[in-house]
């Protein structure tokens, strides 16, 4: 045990560097997912234009059906090769995870909005609320509650999926651990560290989502 802690302490700068990359990508992707997902979700719930609906649906399906690994390849290798844009590994990772997160988030937002009964809209209008007031004061507060469990679950999925970024040359905490394993030949210490780390990152979120779900039911 002492030996394990010593090993982790000696390699703390490297592990922190990797953790920083992991959390940075996950946090940026979460941020853009919430904004993009909210906008797209509201659009899908309220704008009944066939073309808009089909485009939004196609976007969602593309990110659901095609593996994230392939998307990373596309943005890191294919797009720069074709366009002479220089896209760094981190930028490609944030872009892909944001686009994926936004597509999933849009479905969560749309689903939540669709479950608000028509009566809530009618009642709001009946007491003379404007469109903005109706959405901000009546619809959103109810919809946000219904989104939260799904949204938090999505964040834990994003955190766990970040380990794919090694394919575009980003050294995340998993890759850092592998580098340390190769030098020190201590796989168990480092995999145990990763297990505890991801547990510590994701479990509180998972608990929070369950608690919120209970409270709202």
């Amino acid at each position: 045990m002492l030996h394990a802690l010593e090993l982790l302490w000696q390699n703390a700068p490297l592990l922190l560097d990797g953790l920083w990359a992991t959390l940075g990508i996950a946090a940026a992707a979460t941020f853009f997912s919430i904004i993009g997902g909210a906008l797209l979700g509201m659009m899908r719930a309220s704008w009944n234009n066939a073309i808009v609906q089909a485009a939004a649906r196609a976007y969602l399906e593309l990110f659901r059906v095609i593996p994230i690994l392939v998307w990373l390849f596309v943005f890191f290798f294919a797009v720069p090769a074709a366009s002479s844009l220089d896209i760094s590994g981190t930028l490609a990772a944030v872009t892909v995870f944001s686009l994926w997160g936004a597509s999933e988030m849009s479905d969560i937002v749309r689903g939540a909005l669709k479950t608000i009964p028509q009566a809530q809209y009618d009642a709001g209008r009946a007491i003379g609320l404007s469109g903005a007031q109706l959405h901000l004061r009546v619809i959103l507060p109810q919809a946000v509650r219904r989104m939260l469990p799904g949204a938090i679950n999505l964040v834990t999925r994003i955190i766990k999926t970040t380990s794919l970024v090694v394919i575009v040359g980003v050294v995340d905490v998993v890759k850092r651990s592998q580098q340390i394993i190769e030098r020190t030949k201590e796989p168990f210490v480092l995999y145990a560290f990763l297990l505890l780390l991801f547990f510590a990152l994701c479990h509180p979120l998972s608990r929070l989502s369950r608690r919120l779900e209970k409270r709202f039911n």
């Binding site: 390849f73 090769a81 394919i167 890759k175």
Partner: peptide, 17 residues
Amino acid sequence: FITLEAANRVAFLQSNK
């Protein structure tokens, strides 16, 4: 230094990385 994986070495060269 860019850290590579065995499977993505060719792609890094081809895309000018």
